[in-house]
Write a protein that binds this DNA or RNA. Structure first.
Length: 282
DNA sequence: AATTCGGGGGT
DNA sequence: ACCCCAGAATT
């Protein structure tokens, strides 16, 4: 239902990640490194790794000590050894060609349910259930109206994702939903204000932002400067807020009024309609 | 279904 | 200080 908005958002907002323009081996290496590890930490190690071992065969010839060292400080170093084993099996049993079948992928060391599905989608552009934490969180909020998905994917989640996969370009759908979860529908302080499907989001319709503001309100006290910062931050997340909504940010009405006036004077916010405010529209 | 396995950035 | 991250394997 929201396919179009999400895909179009993705096309203009996606990050330029090296594993989005590489071969199956490049995708496999990235998926190993990205297991429980943020993109920003993977990037530099990934680049060096591919430069050094551009194919499964080349990594298969390496010594375990080299592999561990090259893994650097990514964490979970057992992943490096499993990737090494994986490369050896691919070399010996598959002549260096990475299998396309999910069952064969699953049988390789270090490849579980998610990574097998990710390979099918990202390396081979076939349909699969790429239910990583980002996509699961996005769908939990968008459809189920809850902040956080269950510990493991339910049958309902799987069948819903299955239904949404487009006929072709399965990998684009997977990447787009994942990117939206990673950049906008984040675990903490999601950027609902710039989310392309905010108006359709069940969680948001259940008044998520209010609960978030109430949460923060307990930690915000004191100075005029802090009050100004709180308002700007809230506007960054929501684009437009009514004055009554901004009032929930701050306990001291006089301070709030003063902060609003000085922010308007400084051009850091602008009035939008009768009693609403937004960030300046360049 | 729970637990174990890491490091590092964000808040 | 606490949370979180394109999970997998073991118990």
């Amino acid at each position: 239902m929201y396919e179009k908005e999400i895909i179009s958002w993705f096309k203009s907002n996606k990050r330029d990640l090296p594993w989005r323009k590489t071969d199956a081996w490049g995708v496999l290496v990235s998926e190993f490194m990205l297991q429980q590890t943020p993109v920003t930490r993977v990037l530099p190690v990934y680049t060096e790794w591919i430069k050094r071992w551009p194919t499964a065969e080349s990594l298969a010839k390496a010594k375990p000590a080299e592999v561990i060292t090259a893994w650097g400080r990514l964490g979970y170093p057992r992943r490096a050894l499993r990737l090494h084993e994986c490369a050896k099996v691919i070399t010996s049993q598959y002549k260096g060609r990475i299998p396309r079948e999910e069952a064969e992928l699953r049988a390789l060391p270090g490849i579980g349910e998610y990574t097998a599905a990710a390979m099918v989608a990202f390396a081979f552009n076939d349909r699969s259930l790429v239910l990583d934490i980002n996509i699961r969180r996005l769908f939990a909020r968008l459809y189920d109206g809850v902040e956080t998905p269950k510990a493991s994917a339910t049958r309902a989640e799987k069948s819903r994702y299955e239904e949404l996969i487009p006929k072709n370009e399965a990998h684009v759908w997977a990447a787009a939903t994942m990117e939206l979860g990673a950049l906008i529908c984040t675990s903490q302080t999601p950027k609902c204000g710039i989310c392309p499907v905010a108006k359709d989001c069940t969680w948001r319709s259940l008044d998520y932002p209010k609960s978030d503001i109430v949460k923060r309100r307990q930690t915000w006290h004191g100075t005029d400067r802090q009050c100004r910062g709180a308002i700007v931050q809230a506007l960054r997340e929501n684009q437009v807020l009514k004055k009554s909504e901004i009032a929930q940010l701050w306990d001291v009405p006089s301070q709030l009024e003063k902060a609003l006036l000085t922010l308007l004077d400084d051009g850091l916010i602008e009035a939008r309609g009768k009693s609403s405010y937004s960030l300046p529209r360049n």
